[in-house]
Design a protein around this nucleic acid. Structure first.
Lengths: 107, 107
DNA sequence: GTTGTATATTGCAATATTACGATGATAAAT
DNA sequence: ATTTATCATCGTAATATTGCAATATACAAC
């Protein structure tokens, strides 16, 4: 069916899965790494850096924005995408909590 | 197209994205949480616990096994699924490395 | 205003994912 | 041996995702 039965899970489970899902594409990983490696806040050479069409990159950026991981500011005629560090740390904490709380001691 | 252009990304980027992707479904989050909360290694009451059909649960378990996060042992006529703690920690480390290495200091 | 540049959105085709019923396979219990 | 219980796998329908060309939007420079 392709549809996820979100209603049978808790909000926390759905949110957590959503973070993971957005990060679950190599283009989005690559975009974050590229932006993260720039000391200054670099705009979109992304299209050249990563080998995907402009429309596709724009779509991936939108998804990263949807969970608050990126913030984009208009800078003249171009856009400046930066990592939202607060949100970044927040999400990292959520993921670590999940990992730490889910360790089992069986087997 | 629905197909991901894996070939233009590094193996590390693809692997990382794959981890995230597998964790990016609330059913799989719920499965891991449930198994993690059992002190003993509980099998598939999962079907009762989570409200999905047996075939669907089985499919999700397969994906979790595919990245080594779960190991399953046959126990009589039932299966015993456990978290592979070593792998679990390994993946947590990978994800944290990604998060720590990608923090930018702009804006 | 027109042109050029940078990004977003729309529409679409190809492929992937999710979910489930039906069917198999295996092993315990009778 | 037959039944029952527990999973796995197959086939299939519904929906989601990925990627791109085409188009739209916004703004600066001329």
């Amino acid at each position: 069916m392709g549809i996820t039965k979100s209603d049978i899970f808790t909000t926390k489970q759905n949110d957590l899965a959503q973070f993971f899902k957005v990060l679950g594409h190599p283009a989005r990983v690559a975009i974050l790494q590229y932006i993260g490696n720039q000391n200054s806040c670099i705009c979109s050479d992304l299209v050249d850096e990563i080998g995907l069409a402009q429309a596709t990159i724009s779509q991936h950026l939108k998804e990263l924005k949807s969970i608050g991981l990126l913030k984009g500011e208009i800078e003249g005629k171009s856009m400046c995408y930066c990592i939202n560090v607060e949100r970044w740390n927040e999400i990292q904490q959520h993921l670590n909590l999940f990992f730490n709380n889910t360790k089992s001691n069986c087997c």
